[in-house]
Simulated assay, not measured.
Amino acid sequence: MTDDTTPRAGPSTGPRAGERPRGPWDPDPNAPPAPKVTERRLGPLHIRVERGVRPATAPTPAQAPGGTGAAQGGVLDKGQSPAWALISTLLLGGFLWWMTGSLIIVACALFGLLVHEYGHVLAMNRVGMGPARIYIIPFLGGLAKGQRPPVSEWHGVLVSLAGPAFGLLAILPVVGVWQATGQEEWLIGAFFIGLINLVNMAPASPLDGSHALGPVLARVHPLLEKGALLVIGAAVVAWGFATGRWILAAFLCLSLFAQLRAGPMREGETQLSNGQAVASLGLYVLTLALCAGATVAALLPLADGSVAGAASAGLRVLGFDRLFGGAG
């Protein structure tokens, strides 16, 4: 039994019996479906990102990868306002001066932070996430934010490692100023630049290391990624509290709780292939080694060329002497 008002397959030249004519207010049956927009909250700052799933049509200039049009969702992020960027930089600089007591070290750290974030920006723009923006976060550091998430985990790995790798370049002019002036504070400033990039390589959310190493661990098993990042994140939080780095420890602790509550990681992104996973791991180890080597090398002139002495001085700055009783 069928109902005469039930639509049937096949061509139709007009309304069927019992069916009213289609008016101009009715949706066009030939129109493409409306995009489905899902919303994600990324990281402890809960950055809002909308991802639209649209029909397979030719991209418009606003949607083209790497273009300068509006981001998905129709809203272009114009970045941090100049006034708030200045205030945030002054607050961050004041906090660093309170910690170090040296304007030279503060200037070096801020310069290194900007170069680090600009490395992320260059990579984001290169893989189609741009135009990316830099935000300065008072008391904590910086953040590079794209207009859209990466389309693949491989792109995410490249973006994550671009910051620490590119950030090491900031050491070169600082060392040049030391050679010209002979002031040892410039070497300590170079050390802090290396330290910024080295700490970011820690695989603890929301640091760059977690975004670079996480997809590799997920390639083995998704639970391995979550478990490893939670254990390492908890250890980093404990280190922060034990060494008196309260603000950093509190920030990482909030991020750890956010990770516990988060759903699937990198939802919608193309997973790493086996070759990309191997390459990602190799790039992570190489970048980590470069950051550690540059950080220690900055202290070599202060340690009379002794690698062990420079490494020991760096560990003391990180507070490991207090953790293992080396201060006494």
Rank of each mutant, 00 (worst) to 15 (best):
K36C: 06
P55V: 14
W97Q: 14
F192I: 09
L256S: 12
G14A: 13
R48C: 05
I171R: 09
D321S: 13
L96S: 02
V177Q: 03
P27E: 14
T68W: 07
I105N: 00
V174L: 00
I196F: 07
L229T: 12
A85Y: 04
E39D: 10
W84D: 00
V37R: 12
L248T: 14
V317G: 00
L91G: 02
T287I: 15
H120A: 02
A34Y: 00
P164Q: 13
Q183S: 13
F241A: 06
G23P: 05
P44S: 15
K36Y: 11
A313Y: 01
P44T: 15
G112L: 00
P222G: 11
Q271C: 05
A311Y: 06
R20N: 12
F139S: 07
H46K: 08
L300R: 09
A34C: 00
A204L: 05
G293H: 09
M99S: 13
D3Y: 06
A107R: 07
A228D: 01
G282V: 13
G142I: 10
G18T: 09
T270H: 06
T100I: 03
W97S: 04
R40A: 08
A297V: 04
L195S: 02
G309W: 12
V115D: 06
L288A: 15
G209N: 09
P138F: 05
P264E: 15
T57D: 12
L224E: 10
T287M: 05
A71P: 01
E153W: 01
L198N: 05
P173M: 11
L213G: 12
L96Y: 08
A303K: 05
L143E: 03
M124L: 06
A249I: 05
Q80G: 00
V236P: 08
L213S: 10
A327T: 15
V157F: 08
P35C: 10
R148M: 10
H46Y: 05
